[in-house]
Structure formats: C-alpha cells, structure tokens
C-alpha cells in the first residue's frame, strides 16, 4: 500500500506573526501544565515547519527556547509581569519541541516535549565572580536552611501553621557562607501554637505561600531571615518583616497575594 503522500509543507520565517502566536500558545500550555518550579517565557523561536492537516488546518512543528522567570507556577501574577531570571542569578533555559494546530484562526497545542537546563557555572562566573550558584535541592545545607526558615516563619506567623510543599530553588554563596532558598508552603488547619504532631494538620486547599529565605552562618550560630507571600484567601496577619532578608517578595500585585 502506498504510504500517504506527505502533506505539503511551508517554511515560514521564525518571526512571522502567526508563528509567534503559535509559540506563545505553546508557552501558555507549558506554564499551565507543570506544577513545580517556575513560569517560563519565550526567548527565541529556533525552527518552524508548517504542515497541511487534513481535512482542515495547519500544524506548526516548532523548536522554541524559553527562559525561567522568577514567578512560581502557582503564583497568580500574569506572565507578562514576571521578571526573567538574569544570568547573574544563575539563569535556567527551557528547550521545547512543540506541535501547534491552527484551525479557524485558533491555536491549540497538540503536544509539547520540554527539557530545562541551568546555565553552566563557568558562564555565570564570566559575568559574576562571586555570585551564588544553583545547588542540588537535596543538599543537606539546603534542607537545613529550608527547615530553619520555615520554623522561623511559623514562629512569627499567628494564624496558621504552614507545611512545606516544595523546595523550588537553592543557591550556595561562595565558600558556602550563606544559603539562599525559595520554597512553597501550604497553610494548615492547625494554629502555630498547638502543633504537637504536624502530621495531624490538614492542608488548606488551593492556598499557598511562596517563601524566600537566606540562612547566614556566623561565629557561634546562624541567622535566618524569611519572607513569604501567601496566594489565595489564607487568613493573613502581617508578621514583622525580618530585616536583612534576601530579595523580598514585592507588594501585592495580584488579587489574593499577601506578603507576610
């Protein structure tokens, strides 16, 4: 049996308006289909080939380059308001192969396969000699820093006991003098005071806190500063902001975000 004739193809320019619309539809699809880590934004369209689809429509087969932003995927901030992670912050890029169907001027993603990879330490060193580098999320210093920061946050918070949901990012300063971590917490139905066994605390659905913390080692001990932004309708009592915390999360920019 004769193989079906390949459908006619066309090779548009990567910056043609319809190609860019297809790429943006793919970015929106990627961001709404992963539950961990950060939102990604379009950086460059590498390749595109358009196939005729029977009985109607066209399929855009593309390779696109993305860059990680500083917004967690659970953060309701619109993507256009999310800052791209800069080279000196140890940027992370995403490479995606996507197929997008264009039918009746609508773009629907048929499939997407993506890989993310951090910039190399050498490249970060080229732009910043003493910047903190990404660390494995299961590094013992990272785990300790998150534990200490969450304990400090719960100690300040007065409404709800928060549990750890995800460690999203960690960086170690040169000589490991300080650890910078970002993690996601979830409020529970326990009050911070009466938590004998956290296992009995139930998570409050659809409410999250995104926290940034820095743990600094010093002679005879360590300092930890944490600040969290709670998304959703969690009851919030604005705790005293620890001074000296790392880049604190900005003021409320979207409904339901409360810096604590």
């Amino acid at each position: 049996a004769r193989s079906p004739l390949p459908s006619p193809v066309r090779d548009p320019n990567c910056d043609d308006p319809d190609v860019e619309q297809a790429a943006l539809a793919a970015v929106q699809y990627v961001n709404s289909n992963h539950r961990h880590g950060y939102k990604y934004t379009l950086n460059q369209i590498d390749k595109v080939r358009v196939y005729q689809r029977r009985p109607a429509g066209e399929v855009y087969s593309m390779e696109i380059d993305l860059l990680e932003t500083t917004c967690h995927v659970l953060d309701p901030t619109p993507l256009e308001n999310c800052t791209v992670r800069q080279l000196i912050e140890h940027a992370v890029e995403g490479d995606c192969d996507v197929s997008v169907l264009k039918l009746d001027n609508q773009f629907v993603v048929l499939n997407a396969k993506c890989e993310s990879s951090p910039d190399s330490a050498e490249d970060v060193r080229k732009v910043c000699l003493d910047c903190a580098l990404l660390a494995p999320l299961n590094d013992t210093k990272v785990l300790h820093a998150v534990d200490a920061a969450l304990a400090a946050f719960n100690a300040q918070n007065h409404t709800s006991y928060f549990k750890l949901l995800e460690i999203s990012r960690a960086q170690l300063a040169p000589l490991h003098s300080s650890v910078y971590v970002e993690f996601v917490v979830v409020p529970t139905d326990c009050s911070p005071k009466d938590v004998a066994d956290p296992a009995v605390c139930n998570l409050l659905a659809d409410q999250y806190g995104f926290c940034k913390a820095t743990l600094t080692e010093k002679v005879g001990g360590e300092d930890v500063a944490a600040s969290c932004t709670v998304f959703g309708t969690a009851p919030v009592v604005p705790g005293p902001q620890p001074d000296g915390v790392g880049p604190t999360v900005g003021p409320t920019v979207a409904a339901g975000r409360h810096p604590v």
Binding site: C14, L67, L87, D119
Partner: peptide, 25 residues
C-alpha cells in the same frame, strides 16, 4: 538579440532562528 531574463528567483530562505527576546544562555 534576445537578452535572457533573470533566472527563477532563488527560494526565500526562511529567517530562523528568530529574534532573541532576552539573552542567550
């Protein structure tokens, strides 16, 4: 004498990769 016209236009080479919106890693 017939002067030959310009040959068939070379196929337009698609401009890819496209523009860089931020920076290259």
């Amino acid at each position: 004498p017939v002067i030959p016209g310009p040959g068939p236009a070379a196929p337009a080479i698609p401009l890819c990769p496209g523009r860089l919106r931020h920076f290259k890693i």
